[in-house]
Amino acid sequence: MDPLLTFIVILVGFYGLATSNNIIKSVFCITIIESGIILLFLNLGNFEGGTIPIIGEDVVAIVDPLPQALMITTIVIGSTVTALALMLCIKLFHHYGSIEWSKIFGKGDAS
């Protein structure tokens, strides 16, 4: 596990967020960034030779359980926030008849 490789995933997500014209593509990119950040946090607590954070008979070294506890809620909350964003996208399409940033911001030059 290399945090640099994970950080490249986050940067790819930011690149897509900045350049994509489609609103749903932007929501996809937010999902990518979120997964990358979760991987970074888990990588922080992990170390070689550690076991999963469950106390058992002969457990001598566990990985840090704190980042994992924070990240579980992030996944569940992130999915609901994605759902809210997509519902807003559907409403935007009903309202403007288009789902692209350039057309919605510059309403005059629709072609």
Partner: peptide, 19 residues
């Protein structure tokens, strides 16, 4: 934090799964 949870976590919470 990791060391604290490993030493006291099971006694204080009663949960095998520290998460």
């Amino acid at each position: 934090t990791k060391d604290y949870f490993f030493e006291h976590g099971f006694e204080e919470t009663g949960s095998n799964n520290l998460v």
